[in-house]
Design a protein around this nucleic acid. Structure first.
Lengths: 258, 258
DNA sequence: TCTGCGATAAAGTCATACGATAGAAGCGGC
DNA sequence: GCCGCTTCTATCGTATGACTTTATCGCAGA
């Protein structure tokens, strides 16, 4: 499944050769086409599919190594790493997940993380926000309210809304999780596309969060954000169920990890 | 400040050349010796300091690119990226932070993250733990209780305790944060070294968390873990204050971001 | 002053070569 | 025939030199 990916192209240069190779390999690993075995088929693959020099190949491997997707041991070969080693929260790794089918367990995990993290971020944002932060969040909210549901600009505004809140929380470590939240949102919006009612109903929730942050009411902002996330999870799971039900052929591919 | 680093050597191969170069560059960036300017002095530096081929240098740069520390653009050169782009939660990036002086703001940020995430992890662990999880957590606790405070084995047991709880939470996304928590703990333990009272007082807290998880009491586990984190933050901040007060020469180097 | 084209610098790509070593295959001794 | 040792090979790591691509900067012309 190839979907629209609105995440900023953080590090991988998609137009550069090593970036393309890295993406190709990463997707093969993440989708499970390559397990914990040798990645060596690529050495032939690069000779057959797209002829690429060893330099470009090695640099692609270095990128994947840095993100924990592969492990290159001195002489025994370059193997795909087990999933526990992957930096699942790395923006690129998350973005590569969009190339594969939705893994329901992983989406649940991400939503769980949102459920824990985003209310706290909203609380901090309420306590620490500057007027500039308010302007950013408010602009994003307007973009959501004014645009047509699921239009590209509207989706971008939705993502910007949540990102601005993380930014206002003034916590560098927390900020790094915003990419994971953005990815979760993208999955969610993608699956819900067409369910305009759910989108419109979520608008007041967003506004309530905004108002609580303006009022510097941390508890309220946290509670409202928690409600927002839970609603989002529920509608997403409903859509996911519908998704699975309609696309019968894909049921088997919805993998629950263990 | 070079300190003991107990984090598993995730990806960087310290014995390999490109790994050493990557570490060298990363530390230079993280400590702030290189700002958002050119990293290009290295091209000469590698010629003067340790003569390293262009291959090894480029692969090191690729690693740093993958972790968001540098941005390489065709003509304008390879620049150190602004801090917002860094993958601060990447295990290697965290481990490289240990090469620099403690940044109080960053430690606070990490503790804030712990404060939000770890109680939730404890709650999930209580709900989902298997008997194998219990065995792991309990073994780690015993290691903490039996060993001498701040001995290497004891510290490892402490880290293992928290990691085992993350593992028991059965959430892949959450699990990725365990490396950040481990890093926070290491800073904390390092700063508190010598304060045996604080360590001994924390033992019952750990045991209470363990018991709540055994009882599958999520609320209790969460609350107790929250208390543990807060206590840890308080004693750490106290030690940090003492640290700053005694090492007068370093006060200026304790940087508050912005 | 603005526009555009070429010079230029740096990253990116390719090809080749050699060294080191882990793991496998082959060989010989018991 | 089984076991241990040697050799052999595959693969990663490193080095080097040449060429390509790209984007910035400055000069020249309108």
């Amino acid at each position: 499944m190839r979907v629209r990916d609105f995440s900023r192209p953080t590090t991988l240069n998609p137009d550069r050769l090593f970036g393309q190779v890295a993406q190709k390999l990463a997707v093969a690993i993440i989708t499970g086409r390559v397990r914990a075995g040798e990645v060596l088929p690529n050495e032939d693959d690069l000779r057959s599919e797209i002829s690429v020099s060893r330099t470009a190949y090695r640099e692609a491997v270095k990128i994947l190594t840095a993100k924990g997707l592969v492990e290159a041991r001195p002489k025994s070969g370059t193997r795909a790493a087990p999933r526990e080693r992957w930096n699942l929260l790395d923006p690129d790794v998350l973005s590569w997940h969009f190339e594969s089918d939705p893994n329901e367990k992983f989406i649940r995990d991400l939503f769980e993380l949102r459920r824990f993290v985003e209310p706290s971020a909203a609380r901090l944002a309420a306590q620490r926000r500057t007027s500039a932060d308010i302007a950013r969040i408010e602009a994003a909210y307007r973009g959501m309210a004014d645009g047509a549901p699921y239009a590209e600009a509207t989706i971008r505004a939705d993502l910007a809304f949540h990102e601005a809140i993380f930014s206002a929380a003034q916590n560098a470590a927390l900020q790094c999780l915003s990419s994971a939240v953005i990815a979760t949102l993208q999955w969610s919006l993608l699956l819900k596309t067409g369910d305009e009612a759910a989108y419109i109903e979520s608008l007041p929730d967003h506004e309530h969060v905004l108002l609580a942050i303006i009022d510097r009411d941390g508890d309220l902002a946290s509670a409202r954000m928690a409600g927002l996330v839970i609603d989002s999870l529920n509608t997403t799971l409903a859509s996911l169920g519908a998704h699975v039900a309609t696309e019968t052929g894909k049921i088997a591919r919805i993998k629950h990890t263990k």
